[in-house]
């Protein structure tokens, strides 16, 4: 019996995030589609409302987590050696950076 094994591996994490995104993505497409093209004041006001702010934040965080698992599998399949590790670090950095910038933007509009 091993206790050091993670309960959720890549595949399982991919499944969990994909089930959450099944509900989030259509909601986000609808929200983004209804506000894009409006002027500055309308956009800022829209994202300061609770549900657009919450759904957009959740889509950003879970979507980018899903991207991390997916891109990691892609890298594992096609890149080997030290480039493999560098590619994974690069993907994680880009993804966390986008996540934080997105949440910062929403927070700044919401408060």
């Amino acid at each position: 019996m091993s206790s050091s094994k993670p309960i959720f591996g890549h595949h399982s994490e991919m499944k969990i995030t994909s089930i959450l995104l099944f509900f989030l993505v259509p909601a986000f497409i609808f929200m983004f589609g209804s506000i894009v093209g409006e002027d500055y004041a309308a956009v800022v006001k829209y994202f300061s409302r609770p549900w657009p702010a919450i759904i957009t934040s959740l889509t950003i965080v879970i979507g980018l987590q899903h991207f991390q698992s997916g891109a990691q599998v892609l890298i594992e399949d096609y890149i080997r050696g030290s480039a493999h590790k560098l590619a994974i670090i690069f993907v994680k950095s880009v993804s966390y950076f986008l996540m934080v910038v997105g949440l910062y933007a929403i927070a700044r509009m919401a408060f």
């Binding site: 997105g102 910062y104 929403i106």
Partner: peptide, 13 residues
Amino acid sequence: CVFLIIWWLFAAA
């Protein structure tokens, strides 16, 4: 696309 939309949100903020 994620990059583009987050940039757009950042600009709005």
